[in-house]
Computed example of a mutant assay.
Amino acid sequence: MDSFTVNKAIIFDLDGTIWNSIPYRIHAWQLAFRDYGMDTDPEVIRLMIGYPGSMLIKKMNAKDPEIEKTEEKYFEKMLNDVKFYPDVEKTFHDLKKLGFKIAIVTSSRRNMVEKIKIEADAIVTMDDVSSGKPDPEAYLKAIKIVGSTPSRTIVVGDIDNDLIPAKKLGCIAILVNHGLQKKSENKDYEIKDIHEILDIIQSLNWK
């Protein structure tokens, strides 16, 4: 397929990338594990945010998959306090003016994502795929939905787990750090704030 006949696309991770949910996720997981008689290190949980919940449960040497549902119940009670980063709405608006299709690929469950308003052309959740990140399945599905190709797609995430599938597929990978120290072996670019994506796009000179 000719690159000039397909849509330009940009895929965003949700938690910690465009949505300031990480502290709330950590607290919800701590409460959930506590209900099952387990005290947990918040730093270990933080490093696992963005992976499927089943992987975090395994990391904590727990076995009951219901812990994930308990975490969702706690997190849902916090939703009113969770906000998108301040520059997200305007950046999405500017990206659409530039002709980009916007997709969200998240390890969150669909019933949770449907409770928040996201202005995106496609949303792929953990419930829509058989393998979660860093498997590229969700990214391929999002790219297909928006009518793009990997070579015309940018992926934005806050951890390396978001960027590994981007590099496997041949997408451009952007790490957003929101002022925190981050490490990634798979990033093509690193930015502090979401709006800086626009400068990178200008340098790419995509038509």
Rank of each mutant, 00 (worst) to 15 (best):
H27L: 13
E76A: 11
D87N: 05
G53Y: 01
D128S: 09
D160M: 04
M60S: 13
G132M: 08
K167Q: 11
D158R: 09
E43V: 14
E196F: 00
P134K: 15
I22Y: 05
R34Y: 07
A166I: 01
L163D: 05
F75P: 02
F33L: 05
P42R: 02
E76Q: 11
L163G: 06
G99R: 04
I45C: 01
Y36G: 00
Y36W: 15
T17K: 05
D41V: 00
G179F: 00
I174H: 05
S203M: 15
V155T: 10
D193L: 03
N20S: 14
P52R: 00
I11L: 15
Q30L: 10
I143S: 07
M1N: 10
I123S: 09
K141R: 15
L140D: 09
I104D: 02
V6E: 11
I123N: 10
D199M: 04
I164A: 10
I18G: 00
G16L: 03
V156N: 12
I191S: 11
M78F: 15
I18C: 01
F4S: 14
E76I: 13
D94H: 08
G16A: 01
S130Q: 09
H27F: 06
K58L: 03
L204V: 02
I174W: 09
A103E: 01
C171Q: 08
D135Y: 13
S108H: 04
L180Y: 09
H93A: 06
L180A: 11
Q181W: 04
V44D: 14
V156Y: 04
N205G: 02
D64L: 05
G132Y: 08
A142Y: 06
A62D: 04
I26P: 01
P52S: 00
